[in-house]
Design a protein around this nucleic acid. Structure first.
Lengths: 249, 249
DNA sequence: TAATGACCGGATAAGAAGATCTGGTCAAAC
DNA sequence: GTTTGACCAGATCTTCTTATCCGGTCATTA
């Protein structure tokens, strides 16, 4: 409202202040993009809401798109971190991981929109990039993780690793899309939906009988390791997205 | 090519000839819509390819949309009939039914497009109607059928009938969509995909252990009854779509 | 040196006017 | 009666022009 109060001059440039400001800008971006969608949210709007000048945003990110990319990465870090925090509560099976992941996904409009390619929210934010990222995701650590589970006998051996990925993605995607299309009175609650997803994917991917306790422990350890690595990786990417110099190069 | 040869005059109006002509027109429509899509296929094109005049098409269907509706219904009858024919080969479990259904669906571009709302094929053909039909489908006989299976213990009791439907639709839909989006080198063959779908949905919906032989027989009988009823119902609807008087009122 | 916001240019939307296409009709021909 | 295809009107697509907007820059300020 009163620009004079911000016009203090030049004091802060410490890294901590910079970071806090970056997060303030991301907060504003998050609010606005959820309300108006990517296409209708302008940099000017964001700056105003965050209480900074438009130019300041360009001190953090080279382009508007990099700003949104940072937002998505921050959301992702929060999501995975929360999964990491809660995974210790259960036995740490794939099914547990999926239930937590699904629950988080359902509670985070940005993530859901990103996964589903919801153009009402993400508008013309390069679909290309999203797909590339998804492909990279599945080709990388996650597939390795599934491979490990399979070796321990925690996943069906009669499905190839590639098929395991297909099954998981299909089930997850299908439930998310279909639940969105269903009339309200039939739609399960988000909690129930997360259960259904984990249950369906788990039954489709895990072997029928119980697996040896030793294997179960190994699988749980692999799960934890994977999630830890995922948190780490997501944080690393976010850190790059939040600096200014780094992302400018 | 030579209109003169058709210009014979007025001989045929028998019901059999009418029906044959209707099917010829539908054949032409099918060819063209698969090649060019709904939006780009004109009634003129269809008439020309079917070797009739444009007006003749309007002797069969009141509007262009009714023509396409008839096409979809015919395709549906063919699909269900084929499922009915092949279902006797196996034990007649839900899983068998799903495998056959998925295989047919995958081999029929029109049905797949209709189910997925593929606008590249169906264009602006009222999405509304398609959704209504899907809802009607799920609210009706199919749900009753699942209820019967559940009573016989052939379906999990810890999922409500509504949830069973949700699971089935989600898995089916998810696999169809995801497989379409996957890069070719990862996409399973249609046969394998049908297996994966039936397998995933079956595991998600059926109880874990084996069920008593008596119950299995009852379930198989219910399956057969359901498919029979579905064939009947689809044929009835098609018959209405193929007459002229009936659909004109 | 950090932050600002007026300013620029390309991109996109909005508007207008005209041409083209196509679903549907119907008088005429068989 | 049955079939046809010229014909009509409305919808849709071009094309051009004009106006608006918004991402990104940079001289200025404190």
């Amino acid at each position: 409202m009163e620009p004079e109060s911000r016009r203090a001059g030049r004091p802060p440039q410490d890294a901590a202040h910079r970071l806090a400001r970056a997060h303030r800008i991301l907060d504003a971006t998050c609010d606005l993009v959820l309300r108006w969608g990517y296409d209708k949210t302008t940099v000017e709007d964001i700056a105003q809401r965050a209480g900074v000048a438009k130019g300041t945003i360009y001190l953090h990110w080279k382009t508007r798109e990099e700003l949104f990319s940072a937002l998505l990465r921050r959301e992702r870090v929060e999501m995975i971190t929360e999964v990491r925090r809660r995974i210790t509560e259960g036995p740490g099976t794939l099914r547990d991981l999926l239930a937590l992941l699904a629950a988080e996904l359902l509670g985070r409009p940005l993530m859901r929109a990103s996964l589903l390619g919801d153009s009402a929210v993400l508008g013309r934010l390069t679909r290309r990039k999203r797909e590339d990222r998804a492909a990279e995701e599945l080709g990388g650590d996650f597939r390795t993780y599934l491979g490990t589970l399979r070796e321990h006998g925690a996943l069906r051996g009669d499905l190839s690793p590639a098929e395991q990925v297909t099954v998981l993605i299909s089930v997850l995607y299908g439930f998310l899309i279909v639940s969105q299309m269903m009339p309200d009175e039939y739609r399960p609650s988000d909690e129930r939906l997360a259960q259904l997803i984990a249950d369906a994917a788990g039954r489709a991917m895990e072997p029928e009988g119980p697996i040896p306790a030793g294997a179960a422990r190994a699988a749980a350890r692999a799960t934890l390791d994977y999630v830890d690595a995922a948190v780490e990786s997501a944080q690393r990417k976010l850190r790059v997205s939040l600096g200014s110099e780094e992302s400018a190069r």
